[in-house]
Write a protein that binds this DNA or RNA. Structure first.
Lengths: 269, 269
DNA sequence: CAATGTATTTCGGAA
DNA sequence: TTCCGAAGTACATTG
C-alpha cells in the first residue's frame, strides 16, 4: 500500500473468494491485526439475548482484541457486536465466509454471501486520548473550591460508601450540618434524584440526631426531577462545567489533586 | 467493483490525494452515502466535554445519517464520534484532509495527514433486526402468566407512573396486597434495588392503609443488592429469561399481547 | 474477581 | 418535543 516502506499499513483483498477471505481473517487474527470486511452478510447472536439480522450489505470490523462489530450505513451503534475478548474464527463454507466469535456463553455468527472487499490493518496508534469536563472533574473542582456549591462549605471526604452506593462528596456546611453532594455532568433526571434519596435516607438512618442535607449539583435539572427533589426535601445547585474547568486550571500549577488530598490526610492527625 | 451490475456497492480510492479524498467525502455526503477512510489522523472534539486525540492510524466511518465514528484497532467503542444528525464537511488544507462535523453545540474535527484508502459505500440493507429476551418481554410474559412470579397473582397494570418513575408491573397477590414488580433482564444490582425502594416508598406514601409489597424479578441478584433488598423489606424472585420466552412462544399463536391488553381495557367498563 | 457508577452514553417509546 | 429508562450497554476504578 505504501511503497518503499517496510510496513504495510493496509493490505487490500478485492472481491476475494470465500476461502481466501477466510484465510485473510484467520491470518490477521493470528497476528493480532484488525480486519475490515465489506459485503453481503447475515448475523445471528446468542448470549445475553438472542438476535437475528437477515441478509444485507454491511461493514464488519474484526479488531485485534477480539471485538467484532457489524455496522450498517447508519446509526452510531453497531447493529451486532461482540465485546473485546472473543475468540474469532473464520472458515469457508459452500461459497460463503463464516465468521464465528465466542466469548463465555455468548456467541455470534456472521455469514458473508459476498465479499466486496477485505482489508487487514497493521496500524500504529499509541496516542493517548485526553478528555476534560467529566463528572469526576466537577467533584475535584468542588473539592478545591467548595464555594462553587456554597459559601462556608468544608469538604470531608469523597466517594463515601453507604449501603446504596457511594456518595460523591460529603461536606459540612457553615452551620455544621452534614451535606451529601451528588454530581452530574449532564442535566439531572429523576433517576439521579432517586440515587440521592437513597443515599440521604441511608445517611439519616446511620445518624438520626444529625441534620443531613442532600444536594444535587449539575448543570441543569428537568422539571420532574426538580419537583421530586423538592418534595423529598433535597436541594439543587446549578454547577457549570466551564466554571469547574476554570477552577481546575487555576489550581493546576500549584498541585495536583491527588497529592493534595493524600497530603492532607497524612497531615491530619 | 461488481462488474456487470448497474450498482457499484463499493467504490475504492487507493492512496487518494488530499483534494480527491475531500471530494470523495463531500460527494458521498451529498448522495447520502457512507464513506470509510483509513489513514493517519488526529481528532479534536468540543461539546459535551472536550477531547484531543493525537496522531495515529485509524479507521473513520462517515455514515449516511451524519454520524461519524473514529475507530482504533481495538475496543468496542469509537475513540471519538459524532452522533447521527451532524453536518459533515470535508476539505483539503495544505496536503491534509480536514473533516468537520457540527451538530448543535457539538463539533468535531478530524485531520488526515495521510489517507491509505477511502471507500464510498452504496449499500442496501433493509433487513430488520429482531431481538428476544429483553426486559419488556419478561414483563409481557408475566402479564400472560403471572404464576411465573407467584401463584394467585393478578396483574393490574404495567408502567404505572409514580413520581419516582414507572413501576414495571402492578399486581394483586392472593391475599389482596398490592405488589410492585420491577423486572431486570440481567442480574440485579444495588442501583436496581434503589429504584424499587423509591417506587415502593412512593406507593406507600400514596396509600398508607394498604400493604404494599415490592418484588425485584431478575435472573439473578448480587450479594450487596440482596442484602439491601432484605434490609428494605422487599423481595426477590428469580425469573429465567428462557422460561419467559417459552411462555411468550406458547401464547404467540393465540393472540398478540398488544391486542390482548387493548381488548381487555375496552371490555372493562 | 465482583461491584459500583459514569458515559460526548445511544436508543426507542410515551406523554 | 421533552422526558424517561433500558441496554446484549462498555468501561474504568476500587475493594
Amino acid at each position: 500500500m505504501v511503497l518503499g516502506e517496510q510496513r504495510e499499513a493496509v493490505r487490500l483483498f478485492n472481491n476475494p473468494g470465500a476461502q481466501e477471505c477466510a484465510d485473510v481473517i484467520m491470518s490477521a487474527a493470528s497476528k493480532r491485526r484488525a480486519v475490515i470486511v465489506l459485503g453481503v452478510c447475515e448475523v445471528s447472536y446468542r448470549g445475553r439475548t438472542s438476535s437475528e439480522l437477515a441478509k444485507g450489505e454491511r461493514l464488519v470490523i474484526v479488531k485485534e482484541d477480539g471485538s467484532l462489530l457489524v455496522h450498517r450505513t447508519w446509526g452510531y451503534k453497531p447493529v451486532n457486536y461482540m465485546p473485546p475478548g472473543a475468540m474469532v474464527y473464520a472458515k469457508s463454507d459452500s461459497g460463503s465466509v463464516v465468521i464465528s466469535a465466542k466469548r463465555g456463553s455468548e456467541s455470534m455468527r456472521v455469514v458473508f454471501y459476498k465479499v466486496y472487499l477485505a482489508a487487514t490493518l497493521n496500524f500504529r496508534d499509541g496516542s493517548s486520548f485526553e478528555q476534560k469536563g467529566t463528572e469526576a472533574q466537577m467533584r475535584d473542582a468542588v473539592t478545591l473550591s467548595p464555594e462553587l456549591v456554597e459559601k462556608g462549605l468544608r469538604v470531608l471526604t469523597h466517594e463515601f460508601q453507604v449501603k446504596s452506593g457511594f456518595v460523591d462528596l460529603m461536606a459540612l456546611d457553615s452551620r455544621g450540618r452534614l451535606v451529601a453532594i451528588e454530581f452530574k455532568a449532564n442535566p439531572a433526571k429523576t433517576a439521579d434524584v432517586n440515587q440521592l434519596i437513597a443515599y440521604v435516607s441511608r445517611l439519616r438512618a446511620l445518624s438520626k440526631e444529625r441534620v443531613i442535607r442532600g444536594v444535587l449539583a449539575a448543570p441543569g435539572i428537568n422539571k420532574a426531577a426538580r419537583k421530586l427533589l423538592a418534595d423529598s426535601g433535597l436541594e439543587f445547585k446549578r454547577l457549570d462545567k466551564d466554571e469547574c474547568l476554570h477552577v481546575l486550571e487555576e489550581f493546576k500549577p500549584t498541585m495536583n489533586l491527588l497529592s493534595f488530598i493524600e497530603g492532607e490526610d497524612e497531615h491530619t492527625t
